[in-house]
């Protein structure tokens, strides 16, 4: 009976489970907070570690690309645009769903999954 009450009382004296990323309480301005971190005035709590084989932001090596259009064919979100003149593709990060099907299909490994996942930005790249 009242198993939860016991558990709650125990948890009262334990460290919270929450990972305090990026700070304990939401900073008033995230940009301002990051600036402070860069200046060394504040400390950034580390995010939860990501495992091997994580499907993060996709890195596109334009040099390697041969313009075979396979990525365009398999991409479920139309994140690739074919550039007629250059015979290469353009990768739209904002449309990407990070399924990494294009990484699997690319014959020359021009597309690679990275571990990068902090992708929000003010700049529309």
């Amino acid at each position: 009976m009242f198993e939860m009450a016991k558990e709650l009382f125990k948890q009262l004296f334990k460290k919270p489970f929450t990972n305090m990323f990026p700070a304990k309480h939401a900073p008033k301005s995230t940009v301002g907070f990051l600036k402070k971190v860069e200046e060394g005035k504040a400390k950034l709590n580390e995010p939860v570690p990501i495992p091997e084989g994580f499907r993060g932001k996709i890195a596109y090596d334009k040099e390697k690309c041969i313009g075979c259009k396979l990525c365009i064919k398999v991409c479920p979100a139309n994140a690739f645009e074919y550039l007629e003149k250059e015979r290469k593709v353009k990768y739209h990060l904002s449309r990407c769903t990070f399924c990494a099907q294009c990484v699997d299909v690319c014959p020359v490994n021009a597309l690679v999954s990275t571990k990068e996942f902090l992708l929000s930005d003010y700049n529309k790249k």
Binding site: M4, F17, P51, T97, F98
Partner: peptide, 27 residues
Amino acid sequence: VMHYTWKIREKVLDVMEALTGNRITKG
């Protein structure tokens, strides 16, 4: 109880992330 169960849930999410590369839409 909601917070407790969701705390327990994190483990299986971690496993799924390690096995598939993503927590929810595993692809």
